[in-house]
Design a protein around this nucleic acid. Structure first.
Lengths: 209, 209, 209, 209
DNA sequence: TATGAATGAGAGTTCATTCAT
DNA sequence: AATGAATGAACTCTCATTCAT
């Protein structure tokens, strides 16, 4: 599944410019997902996008940092939209936790390049100076989401006793584990994996009977 | 704590050569732990080791791949010795699992650079042609250990029902999570973290009552 | 003090065009005075002038050479007006020389960016092909003024014996010295400096008693 | 006259390395003197020195900054040796001042590229970060020499009343004027120019009779 | 056992300019 | 009167590696 960023991601861009940006962005994401961040150079992106010169990338994004910034923004955008579509009205904490875990894994199934790219860029976000979306920040955001739910659930008595920060971080890394497994073996049944993961953390967080 | 590889890691080396190798290896590990794999170049290693030329690195290890190979071997060696010292004679699967998890976290506490280096190298091991210890292989080894215990425990009735591969992978990544948390905040109480992790997976793997 | 070029520097320009030219010119002069000629690029000028694209610069001035040409013309214009305002009706050569030197230094005090810009552009005027006001030419013009006075004064017996070309050139560079000193230390008392310089060359040019 | 740096400028260099360094240095100085600092690139130096690749320059000097550092050091070295050879035992301040001025101009006559290079590099020494010999520093050093003599002479009554800082700076820039004149017209009689300059400042600094 | 010297490939950036509309 | 889009050239730098001795 190819990532096709919206043609009008930001206001004030002409149609052609937005199209070019989308074209380059798409090629960049594909390249990172394919070869990893390290081997992703302007030259490689140029080839994949069928551009005549690498210069045009710098023209549209100013910088390598600017390009990566845009890549992250795009990927995060896609993820958010995906999450919104899946969101149901449950307020039961245990059900919510299960939904979040399964949603993450399903996103991995539907947009593996997105997940890959987010990981790659976050892991190598120490190169330049002016990144507004740094690796730790990204990670912290994701963990924070889980931690909040866990704490609320504990207060409401929906969960048992455990340290929310540790469990939250473990959930996040468990999902990374799913991504790693899927990368290593694309035939992996992610639905099963997601269910199993949700079960796992259900048992872990269940209140003492 | 500085990593000091054994002076006689391989047979057939003179004392001076072994010493040089150890010196370079130590500097390499320190550099990777400090700056990450990406910024670790021959030049950087040269500086830290106080060498006059980068040439000597290539001389002793032939290659960048060769150097990294040696780094991984060294780190794995240290880890294995650490594990052996801690091993007790338990045959109870649940106790063994707890011991393994806590041992991993304790290793992280005592040899953080080692863990860091193993992660960094494994994550960037797609570069070269001639690696005998590739990233996935390394990962697979670690997961395999957990998976074996889990399966045996299930057969013996010590554990409940779950998919061993998923849980095993999740444990491995949960420990990576501990490493990431420790990197982000070195004042983290790893003993607490280890205990919590062991508790977490105890609950997860416990047999249905 | 900001340089604001006249809005109608050349005939046949509409009001808006003249305004745009003035805006760009002003930004260019400020940039050169601030960062020096070398770091003054279209991009930098664009930023300071708040333009949307560098393209508009080329549109109005055709060329970098054209832009610099205009800059020099503007600066020279300002200088000439300044000199005219100060000019008194003296015909005494010694008094005229003193007046010219002090006028130059006072101009430096009142329009330091102008002087800076003239120096910077003159010093780097070997770049292009089509400059009508080249560096040496600019320098020659200034020196010529002094030299003329000196020769006339010598003929009239107002000055002693010396080689007018050498002294003229020395005066010009002495004033450059004042500029350099002022750049290095903006708190410098330029009036004192100017008087001292005038005294200096008065002694030098005085007739043998 | 070609600048040929000593073959053993610094200890610890092998003969071949010193020779290469000298070769590159010589080509660099010639290039700067010929085309100016701005147009002096590794590629241009490579051509003039007959090297196979620009890479070798970076190899020997590490950096462009390193190369320029070495250029300045070399030029300053040559100048110092020149000055030492000319130094006579006079202690009379007026004579010393004259000697210094004429020595500077004679150096310009004998090593015009050296003077040119020093000027060019000093004028463009704001590019990088790690320069130990910056432009203002270099200038300050030269002016300081003149200022010291002037002050001492005033105390001893050998000179009249004037502000030593202004006069010192003026002398330095007067010599720059000679360099500029010589660059514009290489057939210029520098000996005459130097004598005239010395006369000029003799009159300026002479005690009131 | 070690080093000095050299090198080719590739990366990201900046720059002024040109072709359209 | 102005802009959007694109581009080619040049530059410095870092990297791992190779050829000698």
């Amino acid at each position: 599944m190819q990532i096709t960023p919206d043609l009008q991601p930001e206001l004030g861009l002409s149609v052609t410019e937005a199209a070019r940006r989308a074209q380059i962005l798409s090629a960049t994401i594909a390249t990172i997902a394919d070869l990893g961040y390290r081997k992703t150079s302007f030259a490689r992106i140029k080839e994949r996008a069928g551009l005549s010169s690498t210069r045009i990338i710098g023209y549209h994004f100013g910088n390598k940092a600017g390009l990566m910034q845009a890549v992250v923004t795009t990927a995060l955008d896609i993820k958010q939209k995906f999450a919104l579509e899946l969101a149901d009205g449950t307020t039961d904490r245990a059900t919510m936790l299960r939904a979040m875990i399964e949603s993450e894994v399903r996103f991995l199934r539907d947009y593996p390049e997105c997940v890959q790219v987010l990981r790659e860029v976050a892991a190598n976000a120490d190169d330049p100076e002016g990144w507004s979306v740094s690796g730790p920040l990204l990670e912290g955001f994701r963990i924070g989401q889980f931690e909040r739910i866990l704490r609320q659930g504990q207060q409401e008595g929906a969960f048992g006793e455990f340290q929310p920060d540790v469990v939250a971080r473990t959930i996040a890394h468990a999902i990374d584990g799913a991504a790693a497994a899927f990368t290593a073996d694309p035939s992996l049944d992610l639905d099963r994996y997601g269910r199993e993961l949700a079960d796992l953390f259900e048992r872990t967080t269940a209140p003492r009977s």
